[in-house]
């Protein structure tokens, strides 16, 4: 069912501060795809280029070398920018810096208002977004009164109300406490599984990666690893050399294997580990 590429980059390169002596090559000939309906994780240590890559997905950065196609539209073409921004929504790390209004529902209405929709439809979309993320009770609150996790949910609702086909989340949980993180990730999973929205999740947390359909590991502006999380984590040391870590279940099962327990090497979920351990005689 997951087949058609929704976003596709070909030989995408990007440099910051081009022309000066200390130009930084943030992306080097990146070829990757985001497939329609999938939940894709992009991970990599700080400075690996994942944010720069993500900002090409909705035209915040335009490709100077290489090509980016979003739903068949070339992102380099300025005329497509508005259309691409309707297709791909973006949520950023710090919720405080992306909320506009002092009232939650007014903030969520901001995006649809920009699209020039009739008031009744904006109202309907705002209600739908609030309801989908289970934050209808916050509608009259001020963002300043909310927890960081709730603020991030409001930010996601603001993007959701624009009814994008794909939502890119740039480290949405980096500022959050464990509870806020769980709330956000559970909701993101629901958006993908229930609403069928394509999700690109940029993250440092391997516990978030394990829930994704596919993952891409970036380092120094290049795609270093790609595949289903259980296949990527099976490749051992390589992931540590890229400055990342294993999910808890994978680390634990690897340790147990070394001690002589016959566990399979594709375990990444806690539940899988528990099942496998229970089957041991």
């Amino acid at each position: 069912m997951i087949l058609n590429p929704f976003i596709e980059t070909t030989d995408l390169s990007f440099s910051y501060r081009t022309g000066s002596s200390n130009a930084v090559r943030a992306l080097k000939k990146v070829n990757m795809q985001v497939k329609l309906g999938e939940l894709l994780a992009i991970t990599g240590q700080n400075g690996s280029g994942k944010s720069t890559l993500a900002r090409h997905f909705n035209g915040l950065l335009t490709a100077r070398e290489g090509k980016v196609l979003v739903d068949g539209l070339s992102a380099a073409d300025k005329e497509n920018t508005a259309a691409i921004r309707r297709l791909v929504g973006m949520v950023f790390q710090n919720p405080d810096n992306q909320l506009v209004s002092s009232i939650v529902e007014e903030d969520i209405a901001f995006g649809p208002e920009n699209l020039g929709l009739p008031p009744a439809e904006i109202r309907e979309r705002v209600d739908w977004a609030l309801d989908t993320l289970n934050i209808s009770n916050l509608r009259r609150e001020s963002p300043n009164q909310l927890s960081e996790g709730q603020k991030q949910l409001v930010a996601i609702a603001g993007v959701l109300a624009m009814k994008p086909r794909c939502i890119v989340l740039d480290e949405p949980t980096a500022h959050l406490d464990p509870r806020g993180r769980r709330e956000v990730i559970e909701n993101v999973l629901c958006l993908n599984r229930i609403e069928g929205i394509t999700i690109v999740l940029l993250t440092h947390f391997m516990s978030e990666v394990v829930n994704c359909d596919r993952m891409i590991v970036m380092d120094k502006g290049e795609v270093k690893m790609e595949g289903a999380p259980c296949d990527v984590f099976r490749q051992g040391e390589k992931i540590l050399n890229l400055g990342l870590d294993f999910p808890v279940a994978a680390r634990l099962s690897a340790g147990l294997r070394r001690k002589g327990f016959p566990l399979p090497d594709h375990i990444i979920h806690i539940e899988e580990l528990i099942d496998s351990l229970c089957q041991l005689k």
């Binding site: 901001f110 920009n114 929709l117 109202r123």
Partner: peptide, 17 residues
Amino acid sequence: IAMESRSYTGGKGRTKM
């Protein structure tokens, strides 16, 4: 950046809820 990616292009063409 956040406003831009939420399709804000100034007051023109905006409606209100």
